[in-house]
Write a protein that binds this DNA or RNA. Structure first.
Lengths: 221, 221
DNA sequence: TAGCGCGTTACGGAAAACCGTAACCAACTT
DNA sequence: AAGTTGGTTACGGTTTTCCGTAACGCGCTA
């Protein structure tokens, strides 16, 4: 079982709930933070001091306030953590239940478990912790079909990348140039146009703006 | 005080908390729904039967599941409610604390109160209810500066409407036609172009897609 | 091997967005 | 009364997007 765990969660009551759950599970060293930046600093510090954390349980959404943050969301935090400390286990505990968002967390950020905050949230979190302790992945039942084949959306990583770049303000021409440079295929303007056209039809979008708005709402990007 | 109140909130425990609060305040007729569509149907039905609701307390975010909804968010629900039943009081109770989002709710959808879910959420909600009962508006302390002059962003309702229509897939031409038809000024394509250009500069956006992505992230739309 | 399907790429025209310039009008200043 | 200012509108030209057509390469198969 885990020895040293960090909880990143800005809502005090939930934080408290997770804390007592961990205590019951026999975890003695538990740190809690309400800001992602604090989470990163604590983990970095612990790593430098050679007393690293075993596990991070993080929310996704953190309220913004006066303190400006390097990592404003759990998303950016886990991305950073997993790239800098690949061995660190990460469980995301969030209300977010959009399948694509969950998919992205696993595929892109390589989290170890995803638990939905719900009526049975803490119960699922318990299970997630024991699974992750055994080097297994865990997926909350609410989003368990995120990877089931029947539900497999016809949207792949390339599509996501395309939409993401669009939302960042790149023109289709610029994306084409970028892909050529990064050796991502297909890179031609023509293919990019065609792919976006397919996505527009798929999502019933009138134009590229509409498309990006829709997929942002869906949590794809 | 209010006689007949509807709570629209998908999280059971919070729903329960609000319910007991209302009971303490002496409200006897309390209905609870977990879907926006149910909220609309109940209110519509009550209106038809001439036993209308006095007040709606609604969340903004509702988890999506198998049931496809006409009103997927509290946003769309209150928009519809306020346009069809202008006399109905609406209190929004949500974790959302982005000032622009709150501004939009008041300015565009004309809600009566906004309460942030937080440690002191229920206390603020109590106050909101009594204020709204006196035909006053109420704003949670967390977002009290949403309308303070110093914080006043240079983005007005017209801008928001523009961005909203853009995100819904309308071309600038179509928006122009729509505004002409609805007698919204300025309506010319030229003015719309100019206004969008101003917004692009303001938000450091490369193009319209980028702009919409940014303002969606900021919660303006 | 010839034929077929599929994905990538190229091209060209129509539509829309982008951008600068300028005319017009109302309100306010001097 | 003349001038200034700010907002709306119009127009023209360039760029980008949108959309249909078509060529090319590659793997599969009859």
């Amino acid at each position: 079982m885990f020895k040293k765990v960090l909880i990143a969660e800005d809502m005090e009551d939930i934080n408290k709930g997770v804390f007592s759950l961990l205590t019951e599970l026999g975890v003695t060293q538990i740190d809690q933070v309400q800001y992602c930046d604090d989470a990163y600093l604590k983990i970095k510090r612990a790593d430098v001091d050679d007393v690293p954390f075993d596990l991070v349980i993080s929310d996704l959404s953190f309220k913004v306030d006066h303190r400006s943050q390097t990592y404003p969301t759990g998303h950016s935090l886990v991305e950073k953590l997993k790239s800098e400390f690949p061995g660190l286990k990460v469980i995301v505990y969030s209300v977010e239940d959009r399948l694509q968002a969950v998919r992205t967390l696993f595929n892109l950020h390589h989290i170890d478990a995803y638990v939905c905050k719900s009526r049975t949230g803490l119960k699922n979190l318990t299970q997630a912790i024991s699974e992750v302790a055994k080097d297994e992945k865990f997926l909350s039942p609410e989003v368990s079909n995120a990877f089931s084949s029947e539900n497999e959306l016809e949207v792949d990583d390339y599509d996501i990348s395309l939409l993401d770049n669009l939302s960042k303000g790149l023109s289709q021409d610029e994306i084409s140039a970028l892909y050529r440079q990064k050796n991502i295929s297909p890179a031609s303007l023509s293919s990019i146009e065609k792919r976006l056209n397919k996505l527009r039809i798929q999502f019933n979008a009138n134009n590229a703006i509409h498309l990006v708005a829709i997929v942002k709402d869906l949590g794809l990007i």
